[in-house]
């Protein structure tokens, strides 16, 4: 089950938007399409599993969605004040706290999700196919 052309076109289209953002010097036009690219890239990565179990789409949706929610929040709270407010969260400005306690851990959570949805049965089947030469048929 190979990645369909349509998902590659979606990936490329979003990359074009980021490129346009670079020329228009709009950081939002660079970043926001790229956050969707993250979800598309994960979908491409687990395409075979998604085709068999469409419910697995929760993985790319929650990772990309999580980034979008966090960056939009950061965008909103830092619009008038680069610190994001005058309060402190664990001694940090709200903006910095959102970055270090939200955006940084989300990357590690995405890796954790990879481990949690990992299917050992699928791997066993794949290893057997290569060992027995069945993959060559």
């Amino acid at each position: 089950m190979y990645v369909s052309d349509r998902i590659m076109y979606l990936f490329s289209g979003l990359i074009v938007l980021s490129l346009v953002g670079m020329f228009l010097q709009s950081w939002r036009l660079i970043l926001y399409p790229y956050l969707v690219v993250i979800g598309v890239a994960i979908t491409i990565g687990i395409w075979k599993a998604v085709r068999n179990r469409p419910a697995l789409l929760w993985v790319p949706i929650s990772v990309a969605g999580g980034y979008i929610v966090l960056f939009v929040t950061l965008d909103l709270i830092t619009r008038n004040d680069p610190a994001g407010g005058s309060t402190y969260v664990l001694g940090m400005t709200p903006g910095l706290a959102l970055y270090l306690l939200g955006i940084l851990p989300l990357a590690v959570i995405a890796s954790l999700i990879y481990a949690l949805i990992f299917d050992p049965g699928d791997i066993e089947e794949m290893e057997n196919e290569f060992k027995t030469g069945e993959a060559a048929k």
């Binding site: 953002g21 950081w27 970043l31 950061l74 994001g84 903006g95």
Partner: peptide, 24 residues
């Protein structure tokens, strides 16, 4: 004040480019 912000004195365009380049 910028030193305690999440972006410091760096351009937001540069940060967005870095984010794309260093993850993908």
């Amino acid at each position: 004040p910028l030193l305690a912000s999440p972006f410091g004195n760096f351009s937001l365009i540069t940060i967005a480019c870095w984010f794309l380049l260093f993850s993908l």
